[in-house]
Design a protein around this nucleic acid. Structure first.
Lengths: 323, 323
DNA sequence: TTGTAAGCGTTATCAC
DNA sequence: GTGATAACGCTTACAA
């Protein structure tokens, strides 16, 4: 910073004011400083800023890059955070890096709040975390002091899926669930509720799965070996994809023989050769609400937990048809 | 840090020594300090460390979360960096965040080198960047002062694909290329070379594509409407997937009617219902070499550019068969 | 092992 | 608008 100031013969604090565009400097000075900064390739040192300001104005985001829906969420978090004056620190988890480690790194950066996408932190660890800083869990409900959740009404989503299928004349509707994945319990519950509501109690059939293509494929094989339902509601789009491909390959026509509904409306759902009927979660909006929840705790001192629930919407494409 | 020291009645610098496990403190002190730190939920402030140390010991990683292969690279970078004493700062690019912005953020964190995965920074911007800090581009060749590249011998990979197909008796082999995506030029060249080497010059047939499923689907439709080759070498696995599904759906059997080879050996390739013959790029190794290249510039003062090239390997699965 | 002191790049607060 | 000065939390060097 000193270099920039020296280069155009002004004070360091003028440069400082301009760089964080604070009020004061005249338009002319602004321009001179910015030009000089660009010329010298100067960027303010974020670490020094954080230190001096006493706050980082950073939001930590924990994510796996595994689910397309999670990727969409991360995309949405950047602009939302920027609008509220926050920067984003990413912490990836994966085979070589567990949640614990990622969280510790983020705490080291003094992020002011944590947005958890996907990863399943144990309840105990979460509670401890939430005592240190606001935590927002995206995708599943958390009932803990200091933790907000932003999610989709997954039970409604599941009901929409079933209603849609029943409306098409299906009765024999199976569900490949998401096991312990975020939202899976609610989707399972919604499926059961809707089936009962339609008087299809004895058609309820739930296969264990998770949110991967392989679980869909496994379920498809099971259904083929047993008795094929006329429709399947999958735990998410990836699972639906596995179902779809495995059934097709086995000579079953989708949607001629079997209808399939996915969940998420991730990019794969709209691929021309998948063209999956699915339940849409609005990732951009969820990201926005997650950031907002964090900001409310940080800037408006909210302390009572919030559980923000969005309504999902049915997106009808080509994998469902009249029975 | 003062709190921790006060809490157990020791000096701040003892705590400092323990926290970064420097030699000196006795085993007993170590334990007491660590226990106290855990109890108080204390983590050293990374920003303050960076500032005082005068270096960040951070590697900036620019990535899109779009390609599975890129995700695998990010996974590999973490452990590799850790081994060499570096931390990782992630900069995601996507629809809402361009490379420019992501790079500036990383520079603000004073990352000591930049590892570029996937994103296609313009040559000019790259050259300017490389004057400020070491840059490692993963996935494609860059011939610039200050820029290293780590990539797979994509031309060899393409040749392996063609050789494999020719070995199975195929002659009419098309290639759906990756357009301007990283490595696509080399894969195209390798395809041409191998076809010529086998005397199949007049069977050379290249369809424009990119590294998405949709481009594979489009190419498949084109091939179906024109004249179906007996084998297709796709630009990458995602493209192969689009080809595979679209052809299957059109009633063509893979590999009965058409053989398909992908590229990357990403997770989708090994899905049971895709089971794609493909060319494997060793992402973990590439990540390691990328980190190593950066570390060499940083720790061993290497200044001459390096272009590290790995040999890919053919992975035979179920989408290729004797003609 | 401990204490003392300096300094990293920035921002904040003065008085000018 | 400038200039001087302190402070953020930590590491490092040196002496005790």
């Amino acid at each position: 910073m000193g270099d920039v100031a020296a280069h155009i013969g002004v004070s360091r604090q003028l440069v400082s004011l301009v760089m964080r565009n604070a009020p004061g400097p005249s338009g002319e000075s602004r321009e001179r400083v910015l030009r000089a900064a660009a010329e010298l390739g100067y960027h303010p040192d974020t670490a020094a800023q954080m230190l001096r300001r006493g706050r980082s104005r950073h939001l930590g985001v924990l994510f796996t890059m595994r689910q397309p829906h999670d990727v969409a969420l991360v995309d949405g978090i950047y602009p939302a955070a920027e609008r509220l004056g926050y920067a984003v620190a990413l912490g990836a988890t994966g085979p070589s890096r567990n949640e614990q480690k990622a969280v510790e790194d983020l705490l080291g950066y003094r992020v002011e709040a944590l947005i958890l996408i996907g990863p399943y932190l144990a309840q105990k660890g979460l509670a401890a975390l939430a005592r240190q800083l606001p935590v927002v869990q995206v995708g599943r409900r958390i009932d803990l002091e200091g933790v907000d959740s932003v999610r989709t009404a997954d039970d409604h989503g599941a009901q929409q899926a079933v209603d849609h299928l029943v409306g098409l004349g299906h009765r024999d509707i199976a569900h490949v669930d998401g096991g312990t994945m975020p939202g899976a319990t609610e989707r399972r519950r919604g499926y059961r509720t809707a089936m009962r509501r339609h008087g299809l109690d004895n058609h309820i059939r739930i296969l264990r799965g998770d949110y991967t293509e392989e679980s869909g494929a496994t379920a498809a094989r099971e259904l083929l070996g047993d008795q094929l339902p006329t429709a399947v509601f999958a735990g998410n789009d990836r699972c639906a994809h596995g179902l779809l491909d495995t059934l097709s390959r086995a000579g079953r026509d989708v949607p001629g023989d079997v209808s399939i509904v996915g969940y998420d409306d991730s990019p794969i759902a709209s691929l021309s050769f998948i063209d999956l009927t699915t339940i849409r979660q609005d990732a951009a909006r969820m990201a926005e609400l997650a950031v907002q929840a964090a900001a409310e705790r940080l800037d408006e001192e909210r302390t009572t937990p919030r559980d923000v629930v969005l309504e999902p919407t049915l997106v009808v494409r080509g994998t469902t048809a009249r029975r």
